[in-house]
Amino acid sequence: MENIIEVHELTKQFGKFTAVNHISFAVRKGEIFGFLGANGAGKTTAMRMLCGLSHPTSGNGQVAGYDINRQPELIKKHIGYMSQKFSLYDDLTITENIRLFAGIYGMKSVEIKEKSTALLTKLEIEKHRNTLVGALPLGWKQKLAFSVAVFHRPKVVFLDEPTGGVDPATRRQFWEMIYEAAEEGITIFVTTHYMDEAEYCNRVSIMVDGEIKALDTPAQLKETYNAPSMDGVFRALAKTAKRGE
């Protein structure tokens, strides 16, 4: 099976502090990959390297077919990204946001126009196309942010805690969008602190103190750690952490 992400011994040091310590793993095309870890375990730093935003201290790898060390700009162009903190511009309208991001990813005006209409219809927000994003309920914003992140049909989309602070019903609707995108062949790389969401992933890795301590399907992890749920698996691993937050 084709790998969309492949890294070997990826490491990031800040002075004497090793934030990410020789991690090696692969993510397969079309899978939903959950990237878990406690606050401060090194998830964000690792993710920034994978997205071409931070240069590794050592190690190498490929994302969407491009080299992490040599082609970070090409990686940025060929992935999608969404985080809880930053996704859309509040003081631009829905249409303006779509146009801005699609333009950044180099899509043609005609294509943007066509696909925007289709997207707004699908999300049932045609009426609000000229509404400022800041005025939308959080649940809508998040669905729109995800749609914008995959608008240019990237091979892989990185979702950094996309559902933080979102109620259980809206989180489920969000995850149905993730499933749909995965069915269409987009690889999903997602971090979350909701352990029920970890169960929705095809495979899950758990980082502790900058290292990947476990990587498997949720079912296999539960068996290995003899835990009834992913919450139990997470706690068993995260409590072995030595470094503070």
């Binding site: 406690a38 606050n39 602070g165 602190h193 352990m195 937050e245």
Partner: peptide, 12 residues
Amino acid sequence: DEPTRGVDPISR
């Protein structure tokens, strides 16, 4: 107001 948003299960 949502004091544990973005906080991992152990810290929660």
